[in-house]
Nucleic acid binder design. Structure first.
Lengths: 207, 207
DNA sequence: CGGCGCATCCACCGATCGGTTGATGCGCGA
DNA sequence: TCGCGCATCAACCGATCGGTGGATGCGCCG
């Protein structure tokens, strides 16, 4: 019997998943969680085999929860089940230890197959995700695109900061801001701050 | 008996909604649709009362489908049921004739209440949505924010165009571009093109 | 008819940006 | 240990932008 925990902040969706598994003799839904915290706790205390995890949740997001589950419930394997409309958390989720990444619009059979595969220790990747993953791996620095510091700069610029005010805000010189921006331009393939902001939104670097 | 059609491209979510209504004596799910086209057809041929509609769907998006249903199935009323993570289609959906706008993370009871309310001809708005709607209404021009021409300029700027190249592309003088940008800044409450692009993405003016 | 929003254009100026080149120090992984 | 990515700083210059204060013509709506 495969013990499954459903972690998703949408009650209706949880009901739907429950329904899918109800007809399966070898799968049992042993619990639900509406946020990351609950997911980690239940996964640990219920001894589940597979956690179906949405990435976007209140309290603690899915990626953090995956990492926490990996340490606090080592027997459990996490299958990410999320929407992905340009979701940029594919790589973080996998780095955090997700055993699979499926889209919510996956057919029922695929979900069932995935749960069983994950239980067997296999990895599952939706085709779309596989493609994106490869694209991201091909990208310099493997998907993280801009560095943490560069992201801070980018955010400030997106909020209308001039190089000078951004420098003041980050306690560095204007020159550093300019250098960071140059690197951002290079990485995003643009030539000015406005296009950088746009490209960042398109790629999910900013939201 | 309230006849309901579920239009959502996620099979699991459709199952979940079905499950929610299964226990209700006065509600009957008479059909499902996985995209906008199907939704319009089924709504017309099945004589449904309420269409539960996700906005993001393949083939034909929810907003178009809402409009089509309003003409092709005048008896049906559409209740938008979507995720909203900064979804910008609130106003378009309502303009297209949606009778209500709920979030997918709404509690089951709220969904049931909403369906019955919509059937009675009432309007339903999730509190979050109501807030955003009012914010948009308070904005000059009531949601359309920037004019068509201004939007063209904004798009070019987002793609990295300088004032000069934007002017060339639109066959106007650089001065016109500058004026348009000034107006855009005023409307979006920003001071430079980068912040304008960011704000436009946040408000859904750009995608 | 008279606003009002829109789109177009002009001039001027200081402020800011982008491009380039070069340099230093740190930390991590091969 | 060597290299690479990252973060930091510098100086210089031309190009561009943003701010201001106009001005004109058009079309729509009350």
């Amino acid at each position: 019997m495969i013990k499954v925990l459903i972690a998703d902040d949408h009650p209706v969706f949880r009901d739907g998943v429950r329904g899918v598994f109800a007809a399966e003799a070898d799968i049992e839904v042993v619990g639900e969680a509406a946020n990351g915290h609950e997911a980690v706790e239940r996964a640990a205390e219920l001894g589940v085999d597979v956690v179906l995890m949405d990435l976007r949740m209140p309290e603690m997001d899915g990626v953090q929860a995956i990492a926490a589950i990996a340490t606090r419930a080592p027997g459990a394997r996490t299958l990410v089940l999320t929407t992905f409309d340009g979701e940029s958390d594919v790589l973080p989720a996998i780095e955090a230890g997700a055993a699979g990444y499926l889209l919510k619009d996956a057919p029922t059979e695929e979900l069932l197959r995935a749960v069983r595969a994950v239980r067997r220790g296999e990895s599952v990747l939706a085709p779309t995700i596989a493609g994106r993953l490869m694209a991201q791996v091909r990208t310099p620095t493997g998907g993280r695109i801009v560095s943490d510091r560069e992201l801070e700069v980018l955010r400030l610029v997106a909020d209308g900061a001039s190089n000078r005010t951004a420098a003041a805000r980050l306690f560095v010189s204007e020159a550093s801001i300019k250098t960071h921006l140059q690197h951002i331009y290079d990485k995003l393939g643009v030539r000015d701050r406005a296009a950088a902001v746009a490209e960042a939104y398109r790629r999910g670097v900013l939201r």
